[in-house]
């Protein structure tokens, strides 16, 4: 049932926006307006993205819907893409190695239904990690993503105690040859940034683009016309630990 709903939703949804894009193009072109206008208009209209020189806006709240019915057990494309994209290197020590996104497989205790899903920072509206951080290094940007300002993180790890999703990692070892866009170093705490360096320039997080099954739909929760909002209006989705009323930006479908 769930599967069908999501499938039809996607079938409707994606071509719809494609169509809208095409129609928009045609209209603009047909009206004889300068084609040079089109790209910038399109960028704002379609993706609600910002350019690198713009400040983030409160109008936007980034979020993600993960369709667990499409997420294959044993597939970790998103995890690999994340490690690759953000330069997360391990040392073969799973207990202290960093993980921004991880694959978890759960089984319902009553029904026995098995679900596989990626778990990362849920980018809460009311993040406990931000509340407890003594220096304010843990903060929420206007556009809803929760980040660590490593310039003022003192490495006390209180945020890791506070996070209900165990989404944060402490950098336990010296890091060298970091990715230029993902600075990270020993003694500070970090977690999924929704690939903020890409987001700031109008691109999507690498996990969402890497998922071969299109199980991760990324978009603007505040924009009723975004593909994400439209899908969320149609299908039922779950917040992890909804009882805590943290209002996470990451939602799960079919859990």
């Amino acid at each position: 049932m769930n599967h069908q709903v999501s499938h039809s939703a996607q079938n409707e949804d994606v071509p719809h926006s494609e169509n809208a894009r095409r129609q928009f193009f045609l209209k603009v072109a047909g009206a004889g307006a300068g084609l040079a206008l089109a790209p910038s208009l399109l960028l704002q209209q379609v993706a609600h993205a910002k350019t690198a020189d713009q400040a983030v806006s409160k109008e936007v709240r980034w979020g993600m819907l993960i369709d667990t019915s499409k997420c294959a057990q044993g597939c970790d494309d998103c995890v690999k893409a994340c490690s690759e994209g953000n330069g997360l290197t391990g040392h073969g020590r799973p207990e202290t190695d960093v993980q921004w996104v991880r694959k978890v497989t759960v089984k319902d205790k009553q029904t026995g239904k098995v679900t596989s899903l990626p778990l990362m920072c849920q980018h809460c509206e009311h993040p406990p990690c931000v509340d407890v951080c003594p220096t304010g290094a843990s903060f929420k940007r206007d556009n809803g993503i929760v980040l660590v300002d490593k310039h003022i993180c003192i490495g006390c790890r209180y945020c890791m105690m506070a996070c209900p999703y165990k989404a944060r990692s402490f950098v336990h070892e010296v890091v060298e040859d970091q990715k230029a866009h993902a600075p990270r170093g020993k003694g500070t705490v970090e977690s999924c940034t929704f690939c903020v360096h890409k987001l700031d320039q109008g691109e999507q997080p690498v996990c969402a683009t890497a998922c071969g099954e299109d199980a991760m739909l990324f978009g603007d929760l505040n924009d009723p016309d975004s593909a994400l909002s439209k899908r969320l209006q149609q299908v039922s989705s779950t917040q992890l630990r909804a009882d805590m009323e943290l209002n996470p930006g990451v939602r799960y479908q079919g859990l």
């Binding site: 690198a52 713009q54 940007r141 206007d142 230029a180 903020v196 987001l199 700031d200 320039q201």
Partner: peptide
């Protein structure tokens, strides 16, 4: 650094990346 971290402004003129 603060502009980039908090406001997401990633201009290149004064960015450490460009120094490097």
């Amino acid at each position: 650094r603060d502009e980039t971290m908090h406001k997401g402004i990633r201009t290149t003129k004064y960015s450490l990346l460009e120094c490097i």
